[in-house]
Amino acid sequence: MHAFAYCRPAALADALRELAADAEARPLAGGQTLLPVMRARLAAPSRLVDLARVRELTGIAAAPGGLRLGAMETHAAIAEHPAVKRLAPALARLAGGIGDPQVRNRGTIGGSLANNDPAACYPAALLALGAAIETDRRTLAAEDFFTGLFATALAPGELVVAVQVPAAPAAAYVKFPQPASRFALVGAFVLRTEAGYRVAITGGGMGVFRWTEAEAALDSGATGADLAGVPLDPELFTGDLHASARYRRALARVAVARALADPAFAA
């Protein structure tokens, strides 16, 4: 790891000032991605602004219509929180399946969203749920926030503050984990509301996306078994040593079908 300066502000305004003062500074959330990346010398920030004590970034609470999750809340905290389990049980289970217990005890939702790994779990949930991402200066719809591979709408020095998640009783997430990293080889988050189905796929390789053709088919009465014939753009999938693009695309159909078989959709 290259040398860097370190600071640990206690207030959001101070963290933003530190980031604004140095274009090469990076915020440090749980560090479960950033620190390994720095150790591999794939990133060499001049300064780390540790967000661990920034009080405005914490808290999990029921909010009008759903939940508000502070950016620095860990996967473990979200997985175990009674309000999340009650209002968005699929999101709690998703959080409880990220990485491994030790990673879940450190990794944060804000860090995961800002990183937007194309195989991360949260982006699929937020896109399907129609969640909103609060930053220090604006609120963005999930579909405007995730802009591509490891890319988001965040401006330099802009921090995720919290995530607003609508209550979602009828939803499920199914992922095929890559066995070593436990990232999604492919994951599918399916939501059903009065307005219809929403289906988001992560792990394809080009970044999270909504499978709108499947949503339309399900709205018209199709079932998981019918998804084999529903168009799914091959350009949204790439191959690597873990899985070919064709295999990932096939897994996406299976993941959605399995999600639809979740008891959450029985009612």
């Binding site: 370190y6 640990r8 560090g31 479960q32 620190l35 030790q102 990673v103 005890n105």
Partner: peptide, 11 residues
């Protein structure tokens, strides 16, 4: 439980 190889001492 945390992994001490994925955390700075100062944290």
């Amino acid at each position: 439980a945390v992994k001490s190889c994925t955390m700075l001492a100062v944290q």
